[in-house]
Design a protein around this nucleic acid. Sequence first.
DNA 1: GTAGGATACTGAACCGGTCAATCAACGAGC
DNA 2: GCTCGTTGATTGACCGGTTCAGTATCCTAC
Lengths: 345, 345
Amino acid sequence: MASPPDASRRATISDIARLAGVSKGAVSYALNGRPGVSDETRDRILAIADRLGWYPNRAARALSAARADACGLLLARPARTLALEPFFMEFIAGVESELSSRSVALTIQLVESVEDEIAVYRRWWGERRVDGVLVIDLRVGDPRVEAITALGLPAVVVGGPVENGLLPAVWHDEPSAVEEAVRYLAALGHTRIAHVAGVSEFVHTVARGEAFHAALRELGITGETVATDYTPERGARATRKLLSAPHAPTAIVFDSDLLAVTGLGVARQMGFSVPDDISIVSWDDSLISQVVHPPLTAVTRDIEAYGVAATRHLLAVIEGEAGDLETARGELTPRGSTGPVAHRQ
Amino acid sequence: MASPPDASRRATISDIARLAGVSKGAVSYALNGRPGVSDETRDRILAIADRLGWYPNRAARALSAARADACGLLLARPARTLALEPFFMEFIAGVESELSSRSVALTIQLVESVEDEIAVYRRWWGERRVDGVLVIDLRVGDPRVEAITALGLPAVVVGGPVENGLLPAVWHDEPSAVEEAVRYLAALGHTRIAHVAGVSEFVHTVARGEAFHAALRELGITGETVATDYTPERGARATRKLLSAPHAPTAIVFDSDLLAVTGLGVARQMGFSVPDDISIVSWDDSLISQVVHPPLTAVTRDIEAYGVAATRHLLAVIEGEAGDLETARGELTPRGSTGPVAHRQ
DNA sequence: GTAGGATACTGAACCGGTCAATCAACGAGC
DNA sequence: GCTCGTTGATTGACCGGTTCAGTATCCTAC
């Protein structure tokens, strides 16, 4: 068992070398499990290192290995939205579990805009603070892609293949899940279905929107997409507007669970009964969708696993690999917020 | 404007020195704004550094300065709970904004247990990966306090002064906010108030519980506290049990907004009307409490500012300061989930 | 008995900064 | 003309690891 290391001066390999009566180099070989030392010497060195409570100085190792042993994640959404979208924390949990098992650190920063984000990438890479980054919320014609490519910073884009294929990406099949949701609603008799979407600049928003309308066309159903900025305010307004229209939809698909819960609140406030008057489907499925009443029908996807997959891919990219990766698609989990369309409508 | 740096080989001060025709030392002085170089030379060096897109290698700087320029935050709750408690992301947002303005990085890791957490502290400090840490969810007789003290790792405990004063702490006055909530409910005529609490090992849970019962005693009201582990499952069970009792409470105070929203769902499912049959108060106030229907009466506190204060204090502690810091207390924000007690009760 | 090869280990350079010590050049003061 | 102090710059050690070239030692094979 390691004794508590001296707080004022932590042990270095030189200390170990002196105590073991060998050179720094030998200690380095021993501690890294590399050939070049006898078993007896190795054991002696390891015992001393353990006794001193030695840990490799990360800065020193990074300096000679030219490796930061850290990955970065920048979040360019307003703090309040971030806090409310369970997606991010679940995703981070996945990222983290994969990184920490390889003892790579995760460095996180919140930024205001895409421009700031690019500036931070530039700084991080210049400072060798990270070995690679995960890029989320890909936008149409995203300037980050070109900037990151120019820097030569290893990166994996989360959420949709990159248009020009400049950066490797990880995504999952959103269209088929959207289609599943729409087909389910159609089977319940709904013929007027609306879609309250997220930020329209995001690639995954566009993909879902297109898939939504493609599914509608195929089924001969009408419907519209309303864009929001993911905030509850805009989500509430969109829902209110939809439900106030002359031919109000009988079902609404929301792009996030926060939007869906907000929509549920608005519907209730307006006197609509869920699911009798209006059916609600949430895209993301977190516990929030399950604790409200009625619990929300949702497209369930394993976000943590998504984070794990993205991270694993990033580590491979840092090692020099390339290419895209598609993960498992989401699946519809029917719950109490969807039901057959009411006859009186 | 800096041109894109060469991806394969990033500039170092040696490169700059060569181009400027001066020594490494002179470049270092110039780039750090220290005396020892003439203004002309300084300008020339800065121009070259800018042209090369130079950033200081963090590892090199950390190695000689014995400073990591990073702070750490460990989260020892299950990923699913973390994702759902807006508290964490808001707190992180505050931490982050304070750190990034001083260009200090935030390193985050998720751990399974307090033992793992201590092990990571040991490793981080041994590796010089962080200059200090923020410790959250302080427990009664928390083993982390002693471990961190033994390591000599600078730390700030978030949420309550540490029993033996071993570590500096940041907290806010929870009792007075609890009292405010109870008094408000009492004024509305409630005489049976329950409290669905969080993890009973947490110091802030204990503090709230004590304040709750003190307030009840003072007002001559009866009530009980039910502990949970912050999960919706346990929260739902606690609410169900309370509402099924012969003399069910007419008001419930929940320790987190997730618990409160869950409780709202349970009440509704059981046919209780909110606030006519049962009033609900949420401790934390995030957008979740506002988007459900009815919106929840909540104790509002600026969590982001809390994160900012904690971080500022941590940076001071790293610089050698000590002492505790109390921040602003929360305030009750009445909304639709609380009302006068029904006469039929 | 010796050449050849593996094994165990040393010494020193190197990664990219910081910083104390040193030094040259120059102007001021006497 | 000489000393002294200041300014501007250099030199080299150092932080704590990694890694490579080189060396001493021992074992094996012929």
